[in-house]
Design a protein around this nucleic acid. Structure first.
Lengths: 239, 239
DNA sequence: GTACTACTGACAGATTCCGTCAGGAGACCC
DNA sequence: GGGTCTCCTGACGGAATCTGTCAGTAGTAC
């Protein structure tokens, strides 16, 4: 491996190994001597990377040489932290964790002064009420949407009567308090909305509706906008 | 200039010169032959950069080698899009715009297939109620927190009586429906909460409380946690 | 003091790199 | 078809860079 290729790999190792990273650890991975690793680190520093070395501990990449020049402003950071905090509060467990992970990953790409803005953001989120546990497995529902797979749902309509239906799930809408599933009903060739808490059960089916989700969703949203509002009267499973 | 250093410079040139960039243009900047530029391009390709060359036109960097391999997962993208959509719906205009800008910037750092996930995210946000326009200039209030500057506020207490106070603004809390200011009152040496809508006016003062905001906020939050709850009874400006 | 790391300089041999030259190919225009 | 402008590739001899080893220094934590 040439030195030039190796320098890119060093940057890669900094990104995927937990900090601090010792020269010995890198030497082992790269198949070179520790002295060469010291030289590589120096070359990266000359090239602009901010790499800090702590005796007895190892190296930390504190500013990525490859950062795009356009970074986030303080206000954009506020929006990001606030938004991901909201998701952590009201999302299902997997989504909540993903919000936390996303914030960590984005934070890692920022220079230290911006990281400080993230840690000390002004906007905080507090909820008096613990969000209700969704009646269905939200991860499986999201997966159905992503994979564009039909689902068989069991739900209670507005009269409380149990009903079943096969639908193509298009999107999950986060309302003020409730979650709503937007779906396409192939039986009736129409769009339908279901409040998630009215769905008692659903199962993933083999039937795929790929690649129609994006187009169908676009059409549905256009229809909703033509009606100007998602009226309360229509935020229930329709008969 | 060593080759390894030069490769980083080539990446830099790709970022700041308008595409397409010819080998001749790079050779001139780098002080090497065109043949060497061809070699450098090849080395970057081997290292993972996606660089496309069009005869008669020049090179275009279509995917930056420096993208962290650990990029956002689809679920993390869902969290991000959902969170920033929430902020766009309930934030003040400047914050709302910043959410949009942040999403655009982060999107630009992602490879094309991840960009598609962003554009076709499953989670959507809808609000039946338009959020009330805050009674105060939220940008100025955020600025006061960032700059750690005292503010003079005029507010109505729970009896509706007009009152005034000088406080150190620490944070803005986004509750279910309302916004709340967490502040430190130096006159009474105590922490105070003010629902933003009860604040009729505020002015920025010259007095700086830097660098105390982070520590004070941490102490206040610890105190709130000790009390286990931000009780409804205390979510009004206190007398 | 010990252990664990980062850090630096010097040297001889090894390896990579460079410019030049030659030739090929695609896209666009006249 | 020819001309222009670029990307593209291989080969060669000389130049430049790089490497591992060895020796020594220094900081931090226990």
């Amino acid at each position: 491996m040439s030195k030039s290729a190796r320098l890119f790999r060093v940057m890669h190792l900094f990104r995927c190994l937990p900090a601090p990273v010792t020269a010995a650890r890198m030497a082992e991975d790269l198949g070179v001597s520790e002295r060469t690793v010291y030289r590589d680190i120096e070359s990266l520093r000359v090239a602009g990377a901010r790499i800090e070395g702590e005796s007895g501990l190892g190296y930390t990449l504190s500013e990525d040489i490859a950062l795009p020049p356009q970074t986030l402003s303080q206000l954009e950071i506020e929006a990001l932290v606030l938004g991901l905090s909201e998701v952590q509060h009201r999302g299902d467990p997997a989504l909540s964790q993903a919000a936390s992970d996303a914030l960590a990953k984005i934070t890692a790409t920022l220079p230290e002064d911006k990281q400080r803005h993230i840690h000390h953001a002004v906007g905080l989120v507090h909820r008096y009420q613990t969000p209700a546990v969704p009646s269905v497995d939200m991860s499986a529902l999201r997966e159905a949407c992503w994979q564009e797979r039909a689902i068989h749902i069991t739900y209670r309509d507005r009269a409380g009567v149990r009903s079943e239906r096969v639908v193509w799930p298009l999107a999950i809408v986060y309302l003020d308090r409730e979650l709503m599933l937007l779906a396409s009903c192939q039986l009736r060739q129409a769009f339908r909305q279901f409040i998630i808490s009215s769905i008692t059960d659903f199962t993933l089916m083999d039937q795929s509706f790929r690649p129609h989700r994006v187009r169908l969703l676009r059409d549905y949203i256009a229809e909703l906008k033509t009606r100007h509002v998602v009226a309360p009267a229509s935020d229930r499973p329709s008969l």
